[in-house]
Structure formats: C-alpha cells, structure tokens
Design a protein around this nucleic acid. Structure first.
Lengths: 110, 110
DNA sequence: TTTTTATATTGCAATATTACGATAAAGAAT
DNA sequence: ATTCTTTATCGTAATATTGCAATATAAAAA
C-alpha cells in the first residue's frame, strides 16, 4: 500500500486534494506568500528567503508548478516564477462556497 | 531527513500548512464534503460512503480531528463527527485575502 | 573560451503517509 | 451474560516525501 487510492474519488475531489497537498508544506506556503508579496516576480532569491538548500527549494517549486499553483518563464539564465491566479481563485471559491453552505445550516450539530 | 523543517517558518505558515496538508488527500476532502452535505452529522456511515476499509477511514478522521478541521462527540457507542466551522472560515479568509492581494496588482508578471 | 550565475536533476538516507488485517474497547441489544 | 454494533488501535507492508550533496545544464559575463 502507501499509494493514495484516487480511483475511489471524483475528479474534483482529486483535483482539490492535489492543490491542498501541494500547499501542505510550510516552505511551499512561504514561497506562495513571497510571490504574492514581491511586486515583480524576480524569484531567484526565493532560495535566500527560505533557509533551505537550493535543490530543496527547486523541488518545492517543481511541486507547486506541477500542481498549477505557480508558473515559470525563462528570462535569460534566470527563471521568473509567479503565482497562477486562476488556481488561487479556484481555491478561494471552493472555501467560500464551503463557508456559505455551513452558514446556511448554522451550528445544527456538535 | 524526510522530516519537515518547521523551525524555518512562521507559526502562521506552519499552521496553514498543517491545515492544507490535512486536506491534501481525496478521502479527507470527500469526508469534509460529506459532513457538509448531510444535515445531522450522524457520521458512522462515512465508512460506507468511501470505498476504504474502516481502519483507514478512522485514521483519516483522526488526522482531520488533529488538524482541527472536524470535531467528534460521543453519542452512545457511535460518534458524531462534524465540521469545525471556525477552521473552514480561517481557510476561507486566508484564500480570500490572497485573492484580494492578487487582484490589486493584476497580472503584473509572467 | 573560461568563468560565473542560476536553476535543474540525480542519487540517496531519513522519515512520513497510506492502507488494511487483526484485534481491542465499550456501549446497545438480545 | 452474550452477542452485536461502532469505532479505535496495533502492527506492518508498500509507497511517498523531505532534504541535501554532488553534479549537470545553460545562458551571461569576463
């Protein structure tokens, strides 16, 4: 075992889980927050921002990219990483929708 | 290695990562969605809803509970599980705030 | 062309996660 | 008291993740 049984769940459930899983590490949260904070997306210094080795940061960036949370475009020998706003918007909608549903049936349980 | 270096990040970053990590599995997304869908929180049949063995579901419920995403109260020999609305609200705020920040500096990069 | 700069990839050790059978615990029903 | 129902825990195998040193790649600068 050890592998997630994705076939038991809907595509949307798997999609959301992929996104939240990609965000499920403080380094990747820190990267996202840094990319939001800085204005111009020159992101080579993410390595300096985090106290992690360069290959480790590179791996985290790869995971965020695979999940569709960030985009990277080559700029000379450096790479411009930035947030993929559509994906953040998707998550925002997902949790807002959840909150709305909970609001409707206020504290009916527990 | 293999262990996350939480000491390099802020408490808030670690807290958000803990929540998103707990949601980073389709079974746990499915559990949360089921708990939102049903009206009265009688949750013994989560096991029937998911195609996973009972110990596996129990383990996922434990993780959601540890993360503070659900609450469980004993009801005879069964257990009443339900969403912890405060935690969902926290996530909703987090992503809404993120979206707002991104909205302000619309597509300045990539 | 050689060196520097920026990033990715490989390989590997340590650790964590996922899943489930077997079993335990504890109240409910008989 | 015994059995049923519901849920948790233990043990364990399979797999995934985290982190980094070493190395590769590729464009820029010298």
């Amino acid at each position: 075992m050890g592998a997630t049984k994705t076939e038991n769940f809907t595509d949307k459930q798997n999609a959301i889980a992929t996104l939240t899983k990609a965000l499920g590490h403080p380094a990747r949260i820190a990267i996202i927050e840094y990319l939001i904070k800085i204005k111009d997306c020159i992101c080579g210094d993410i390595v300096n921002e985090l106290s992690l080795a360069q290959p480790t940061v590179s791996q985290h960036l790869k995971e965020l990219k695979n999940a569709g949370l960030i985009k990277g475009s080559i700029e000379g020998n450096a790479i411009n990483y930035c947030i993929d706003e559509k994906t953040i918007a998707l998550l925002q909608k997902y949790f807002t929708n959840m909150s709305t549903k909970l609001e409707i049936k206020k504290n009916k349980c527990c």
